[in-house]
């Protein structure tokens, strides 16, 4: 029977050569890194590519340098934290306004719909002219970049309160504030959390990209500077560090946000 079944109707095989997909993921990752290592040590010009092992060593060296940590890493992390906080507060606040007022919802919805189609980084030069090259334009732009994804997810959450619960609240004469704290926010929390998780990714991209384009310090700036001054090993070390930081940040904040998500418990 199974032999007659066409391939498309068969269930996905559990293993290939005795290995599960997850193991294959690891195998492929190791193979890719090994290929990179070999390429870097044989064919490719060392000014273009350094071997992954060298990247790791150089990253460790940079992290051991106090000036690098305090001068580049911590400022970037501070800006990301500020942008993330601003995006979260503004995003949830705006979503609440839209949920309360149908007029605002109608007025804002079309703009939110096309928001991520517009490359918002185009506005960065305006902010730089108005506010200088410091942290303020970076935080503002990154927060604006991250806020809208928080808005749309929070709105989904606010809309998710079931009709019977709303009716119950009305029959119990819950005030606006009580309704907000006892029903609306708890009900919306999982969606707000997933919005915040994306907001963090966006805020991180925003900070690193603006630092990269035009700024005086920070990790993004450091990579751009390393590129311009042909410090290839430093550039790759910075890229590796950002990948690791982004990963660690996502995992850490994701773990915190998961605890807020009662739907997963």
């Amino acid at each position: 029977m199974t032999a007659a079944l066409p391939r498309y109707a068969r269930p996905r095989p559990d293993r290939l050569l005795g290995l599960t997909p997850a193991v294959w993921t690891g195998v492929l990752a190791v193979l890719a890194l090994a290929a990179l290592e070999v390429l870097a040590r044989t064919v490719v010009d060392p000014i273009d590519l350094v071997p992954p092992t060298t990247m790791v060593v150089r990253t460790a060296e940079l992290l051991g340098t106090a000036g690098f940590v305090t001068g580049q890493v911590l400022p970037s992390l501070g800006l990301i934290a500020a942008a993330f906080a601003l995006a979260g507060v503004a995003g949830v606040g705006l979503a609440y306004t839209m949920w309360r007022s149908p007029w605002w919802r109608l007025a804002l919805q079309p703009y939110l719909n096309v928001y991520y189609a517009i490359p918002i980084f185009a506005v960065y030069p305006i902010l730089v002219v108005l506010l200088g090259t410091g942290g303020v334009p970076i935080v503002l732009l990154s927060a604006a970049f991250g806020a809208v994804v928080v808005v749309t997810n929070s709105l989904l959450g606010f809309d998710s309160v079931p009709e019977p619960v709303r009716k119950l609240a009305r029959s119990r004469n819950l005030g606006t504030r009580r309704y907000l704290t006892a029903i609306l926010l708890p009900a919306a929390l999982p969606d707000i959390a997933s919005g915040l998780r994306l907001g963090l990714v966006y805020a991180t991209i925003g900070v690193l990209a603006t630092e990269f384009i035009l700024s005086t310090r920070g990790l993004g700036h450091e990579i751009a500077d390393a590129y311009h001054t042909f410090r290839t090993a430093d550039m790759y070390a910075g890229i590796l560090l950002i990948c690791l930081l982004a990963l660690a940040l996502n995992i850490a904040v994701g773990a915190v946000l998961d605890r807020l998500d009662w739907r997963r418990r």
Binding site: A226, Y227, G238, I239, I242, A246
Partner: peptide, 11 residues
């Protein structure tokens, strides 16, 4: 995909 891709632009 989850890496802030902009830092890969120098490559």
């Amino acid at each position: 995909y989850s890496v802030p891709k902009i830092v890969l632009f120098p490559l």
